[in-house]
Design a protein around this nucleic acid. Structure first.
Lengths: 267, 267
DNA sequence: CCCCCTATGGCTGATACCGTACAGACCTGG
DNA sequence: CCAGGTCTGTACGGTATCAGCCATAGGGGG
């Protein structure tokens, strides 16, 4: 079976899970942490959604219509400068919520956000999220603490982008993806180059190095992590620093990352 | 008179202003925007404070005791990595509040924060700030919108640090300081090098270039902006993008930056 | 089976910035 | 007036990464 066949949990099967309750079996750290009272505020507004690769979640300076709670996959906050150059400034997967500007009453922000690793999740209208956050202080606290965790990640990236080599940053970035979606995921070097803010050719050299060292294996558009511990040695400390603060700040963070196996489409 | 004589508004004269009401005459955009009800929540807890250069505001992974509302001067969020390298990831002056982790219920964060340009302001105990923010939704909104503005700034820095030259970033950074404290401020090249995450020698070369072009003038430990418009042409778009979002998000942002003259110590 | 598109691999020379080092210039205190 | 610290100016070789370019290879559609 080609690797690309391992893809999405479709929205139908995601919707099925609703019957069993969200809090119990969601991979999303915010949803799984909800108390019954919080769940009553949130759940009626959740709509299951598939997240195909390259889907635009929101655009710079456009009102954000929904916040997203990702189950599988990974969204990327990308800063695209007027001259066309781009870099990723932050990544969000199942550990939190996409759409922080909604929570912070700002409605929009100057970054582009798209789906970098396909998956699925839930979305909730911006107004509903704001209303829920204003009604429950405990829910608000969870969302705000995640916001701080994400802020830390972006702040770490600002330093990392300045001070660390492509190799260090590449290893860090692959580990961050692994924590969210497991050992294997679809990803081209072209895309990875945008994430790291470097030329595609630079990624090729680095990827070959990592593969040569037995840390990863890749084919066209797919990457598999072979040796996470080895990769962590190559990565800069930024990986560990960010992850540890996530663990401290997100609800139930002591079990981050989740190690359950990736769901597959039926058949 | 040596430039270094132009320094602080001492806490005594800051305290005097209290008599006239904070909202009326504060340079701080959050304080000056407070409604009477909000002011009643905040003002009793404010304590005037001078902010000497290099003062530590908070340390990595240490509980933050106070939030700060700066009137003059400028604080810097610095990421110091385990290997000793450092870069600034964000700057806060009179446009907002220092101590976002308090508001976001996270208590602390992995960055170092210190005073980069001396000045003065007010501080408020962390618990008092949290309590005020939880009691008033409108106050909370103001603080959260500032948080988004600062988040944008850090996200912009992440991209800027990766993609722009020392010269562009240096010009950007000087303009950001100017918006907060006026055309002249104490600052060594050594410090500026940390801010930009480059060698001190690299700053010297850049500073000479900018001075040669008539954009700035500097002596030991002091910088004066001569031609802001010219500097803006040298700076990358990151300056404008961040500033414009600040204007949109902070209360009364249409009058940012304030252009009133810098107060001087009596005599 | 062939074609074409996408993805990866590998050149070449250019350059921005680094690490290190040292010298001069200014300021302050004894 | 000297001593010592701090700040700035400058040089040198080294290197990570860039910009541009072309070659190869896999894989799906006709």
């Amino acid at each position: 079976m080609p690797l690309t066949a391992i893809r999405l949990l479709d929205s139908e099967s995601a919707a099925c899970r609703t019957a069993g309750g969200i809090a119990m079996d969601s991979r999303n750290f915010i949803l799984r942490s909800l108390s019954p009272a919080e769940e009553a505020l949130v759940r009626p507004h959740l709509e299951p959604i598939t997240l195909p690769q390259k889907m635009t979640v929101f655009r710079p300076d456009e009102d954000i219509s929904h916040a997203y709670f990702i189950e599988w996959g990974c969204a990327s906050l990308i800063n695209i400068l007027p001259d066309g150059d781009a870099v990723e400034v932050g990544t969000i997967g199942n550990e939190g919520m996409v759409g922080i500007p909604v929570l912070l009453e700002a409605d929009r922000m100057p970054c582009h956000c798209d789906i970098q690793i396909p998956g699925n999740g839930w979305r909730m209208r911006a107004a509903a999220l704001r209303s829920a956050a204003n009604q429950s202080q405990s829910l608000r606290t969870k969302l705000l603490r995640f916001t701080q965790a994400h802020f830390n990640q972006v702040a770490q990236s600002a330093a990392c982008n300045r001070l660390h080599s492509i190799e260090e940053r590449c290893a860090r970035w692959l580990l961050m993806c692994r924590d969210r979606v497991g050992d294997e995921f679809p990803l081209t070097q072209e895309y990875l180059a945008v994430m790291l803010g470097v030329r595609r050719a630079g990624v090729t050299v680095t990827a070959r190095l990592l593969q040569g060292a037995g840390l990863i294996a890749y084919t066209r558009g797919n990457i598999r992590i072979l040796d996470p511990a080895g990769l962590e040695e190559v990565a800069c400390d930024c990986y560990r620093i960010t992850r540890d603060e996530f663990r401290r700040l997100i609800p139930g963070g002591d079990s981050y990352p989740l190690v359950d196996s990736k769901p597959r489409s039926p058949g």
